[in-house]
Design a binder for these strands. Structure first.
Length: 259
DNA sequence: CCCTATGTTCCCAA
DNA sequence: CTTGGGAACATAGG
C-alpha cells in the first residue's frame, strides 16, 4: 500500500533499470485494467512520480500512468522467472520483465495525461512550504490529519506518514486545520520533509505487503513512532499510544504529547 | 463468523 | 461550499 516514499523508491529503481530500454511486448492479464493502446516498440525516456502516481514517459510523448492503490506491487523479474499469483500486467524488455502484481485489483493503468486534479503542493519531499500550507488551511475546519491526506492539497502523503508527521510535530490529528499556528505548520513541514526523506532512503515501510522493485522489504517500519503501535509506550513520554478512527482511517497518536 | 488493511471515488446528508 | 459517513472496488490475514 504505497505512499510517496514507496512510489519514489520504485521510481528510482525503475530509472536504474529500464531507462532507454525498449518495450518488446505488453501483456494485459486482467481485463479489469481496460483497453490500453499497445506500447510495444516504444522506449522508456524517463520515469516520473506525481504524488502516488508513477509515469513511464515513452517516446512519441506518450505517458503510461500507474497507480498502485492498496495492494499493487511492481516487480522486476528475469525473463525465465515464473509470474507470481495475481499478476495483472507485464512489460517485457530485452533484459527482464516488469510485472504488476495486485491481489485486490484496485491498481489502475492509463495512457495519456492524468485525469486527477493537480495538487497545490506537488512534491512535499522537496518543496513543503509552511507559509503556503498555513494560507491554504486558513478558515478550514476539517481535522489537520484529513487536510494532510487530501491529495488535491498535498500530493503523496498517506495514512502512515500523516500519523508519523503529526506525532513528530506534537499536533493532535483532530485539531482544526485553520487553528494551527504558523509555528505549528513549520514543525509539520520540517519534520514532514525529514520523515519522507528518511523513509525514502529506507526504501519505504514494509508492515505487510510492501516490497520494492526487486522484492525486498523496506526498512522504515523500524523507525515508526506511532503507526501500528496501539498500546505500546510513546517513544517520547511512555504513555500508551492510542488508536482511534478519524475519517474512516486508523489513527495512531499520543494523547499526552500531541495537543 | 468478526474485523482490519499504507487508496480513491462516489453518493448522500447535515 | 464544506465536511463527514458509508459504500464500493476485491482479497488476505488475524
Amino acid at each position: 500500500m504505497p505512499e510517496l516514499p514507496e512510489v519514489e523508491t520504485l521510481r528510482r529503481q525503475l530509472e536504474a533499470t529500464i531507462i532507454d530500454e525498449r518495450i518488446q511486448e505488453q501483456k494485459i492479464l486482467d481485463e479489469k485494467l481496460g483497453d490500453l493502446e499497445n506500447t510495444a516498440g516504444r522506449r522508456i525516456l524517463a520515469v516520473e512520480r506525481h504524488g502516488k502516481y508513477l509515469s513511464l514517459c515513452l517516446d512519441s510523448s506518450i505517458m503510461l500512468q500507474l497507480h498502485l492503490r492498496m495492494t499493487g506491487r511492481l516487480l522486476w523479474q528475469k525473463l525465465a522467472d515464473r509470474l507470481p499469483g495475481h499478476s495483472r500486467f507485464v512489460l517485457r524488455f530485452a533484459g527482464g520483465k516488469l510485472v504488476l502484481v495486485d491481489p485486490r485489483r484496485f491498481a489502475t493503468i492509463s495512457l495519456g495525461t492524468p485525469k486527477t486534479r493537480i495538487a497545490l503542493i506537488k512534491d512535499p519531499l522537496h518543496t513543503f512550504g509552511a507559509a503556503l500550507l498555513w494560507k491554504i488551511a486558513r478558515g478550514r475546519q476539517r481535522p489537520i490529519k484529513t487536510f494532510l491526506l487530501d491529495q488535491t492539497i498535498i500530493a503523496g502523503i498517506g495514512n502512515i506518514y500523516a500519523c508519523e508527521m503529526l506525532f513528530a510535530a506534537a499536533v493532535s490529528p483532530w485539531r482544526e486545520a485553520g487553528s494551527l499556528s504558523r509555528a505549528e505548520f513549520r514543525k509539520i513541514t520540517k519534520t514532514g520533509r525529514d520523515i519522507l526523506q528518511q523513509a525514502t532512503d529506507c526504501r519505504g515501510t514494509s508492515i505487510s505487503d510492501w516490497r520494492d522493485l526487486h522484492g525486498k522489504k523496506g526498512e522504515y517500519q523500524f523507525q515508526l513512532a506511532v503507526y501500528g503501535k496501539e498500546g505500546l509506550p510513546c517513544p517520547s513520554c511512555g504513555a500508551a499510544i492510542r488508536r482511534d478512527s478519524l475519517g474512516g482511517r486508523g489513527t495512531y497518536y499520543c494523547e499526552k504529547c500531541q495537543k
